[in-house]
Design a binder for these strands. Structure first.
Lengths: 128, 128
DNA sequence: GTATTTAGTTACTTTTGTATACTAAAGGTA
DNA sequence: TACCTTTAGTATACAAAAGTAACTAAATAC
């Protein structure tokens, strides 16, 4: 095997497996982008309102993972009804511009990708 | 809701949902990186050898999705035993450096993230 | 005493991923 | 002749992850 491809095999040092697997789920990137764009503290319900198709459970799970990774900080106020505020950590703030970079690429090419997807579906359908 | 956050709500034009959701699976990014690093045509079995922990089914599914999105081109030779070659399209080649950018960030910070995660696990465990 | 509020949790269903065996069809070998 | 190998998949059965809807706590307002 080509030497430069070895890093992609299943090893503990594979950067893709170590990182994309962390924030490569359905919601993490979206939550990071929303927190980054908003720019400060956001309450749970506020995040839920912005990302309107996420369920409470998935938002909780996603925030917990991001907190565990040190990308998001959680502040819990002992009040009734409960109040919890989230914001990016320094590490999170450092990451967001790199994600935005990819998101900008996405914005620029999303139409082309959607067209390609439709063309492919027709191609597959015509073979049935 | 803040005007600049509206793009993150569930709309058909949300670039994150339309494009990131594709990378949100377990293998797409890895396949793109391998094809990009290799730099040319790769046969199915070659990809399977490099990404040694992917199953045949998932490699097939992943390649079909990338093909549908127009990121990867598939060339089938009518031979026995079969021969199929894959390579990045121009769109795919355009995307890969942006992914590499994120992968580099990942490499740089993966240790910090893993430490944070361990700390968090201990914190959670101490509350049981 | 009853409805409202917020940030979850629980039990359940659906989707995604894994493991393993199986296929086609030509060429080489015993 | 019967068999083994080759490649790029499929098929099947199962496990894990993600998603859904309903439920909870406990103080406050009416």
């Amino acid at each position: 095997m080509k030497k430069n491809l070895e890093i992609f095999s299943n090893s503990p040092t594979c950067p893709i497996r170590n990182v994309f697997d962390r924030f490569g789920d359905k919601w993490s990137v979206l939550v990071l982008m929303v927190l980054g764009t908003h720019g400060g503290l956001m309450r749970f319900g506020e995040l839920k309102e912005v990302i309107d198709d996420i369920t409470q459970k998935m938002l909780t799970v996603t925030l917990r993972t991001l907190e565990a990774d040190g990308l998001v900080a959680r502040k819990y106020y002992q009040e009734i009804p409960p109040r919890v505020e989230y914001q990016l950590t320094d590490l999170g703030k450092d990451l967001v511009p790199h994600i935005e970079n990819l998101a900008n690429w996405a914005s620029k090419h999303v139409d082309q990708i959607l067209r390609s997807r439709k063309r492919f579906e027709k191609k597959v359908a015509s073979k049935d």
